[in-house]
């Protein structure tokens, strides 16, 4: 499983050196795509468990989440060091101001950067020790991953030139995953009873 999750990474590396027309843009996009995909895959674990009752899948959730973080981190590093610093011949001292300007000026980068920052504490607190130490707080802290996913999809929506097909696909999948969770929370029997009693009272 670990190695399967690394396949996209190694594929990107080979493509990067395979005489691409726009190699830097390629790896920036590819790492971005895989960040979103791994976020969605991680968020799909609970719905899969709800629908199929496949409890064992919970064990891989942490690894999937950490891979999402790995791709987001790579995405950010490529943007900052390869695209901003190396491509533009910018020294380390200037790099911070370049990144800062981008974050302040460009909403899609602001949103992406916030998502990246929000993921850091989740990655740091992913160990068993941290889980135990935080107890109930751990659960509520890790709920921020929903926000990260929303910001990630928004980041994609904002940056495309015109064709919204792919951002829409990611957004729909995310909405679907949320829908399954919500459906689980709703007490169907209670709802049914409520509707039923309402209907019958209407009849009278």
């Amino acid at each position: 499983m670990f190695f399967i999750c690394l396949i996209p990474f190694f594929y990107m590396v080979t493509q990067f050196f395979a005489d691409q027309a726009n190699p830097v843009e390629y790896v920036t996009r590819a790492t971005g795509d895989w960040s979103l995909r791994f976020l969605l895959i991680t968020l799909a674990v609970t719905p899969i468990r709800i629908i199929y009752g496949f409890g064992k899948i919970l064990r891989v959730r942490r690894m999937l989440g950490l891979f999402a973080f790995f791709y987001v981190l790579t995405h950010f590093m490529i943007y900052a060091f390869l695209d901003l610093a190396y491509s533009n011949d910018v020294g380390f001292s200037e790099l911070a101001s370049y990144v800062y300007n981008d974050i302040v000026k460009r909403p899609y980068i602001t949103v992406g950067f916030i998502a990246f920052l929000l993921l850091i504490p989740l990655a740091v607190t992913s160990t068993n020790g941290m889980m135990k130490r935080l107890g109930k707080k751990w659960r509520s802290l890790h709920k921020s991953v929903y926000l990260v996913a929303i910001l990630g999809v928004l980041h994609y929506f904002w940056l495309v030139k015109k064709d919204l097909t792919e951002p829409v696909i990611y957004a729909s999948i995310l909405a679907g995953l949320f829908a399954v969770r919500l459906a689980k929370k709703v007490d169907w029997k209670k709802l049914k009873d409520a509707i039923f009693t309402k209907q019958s009272s209407n009849e009278i």
Partner: peptide, 10 residues
């Protein structure tokens, strides 16, 4: 700035 196609540079 602009990316030069076929290169890592801008």
């Amino acid at each position: 700035r602009e990316r030069i196609i076929g290169s890592f540079r801008r």
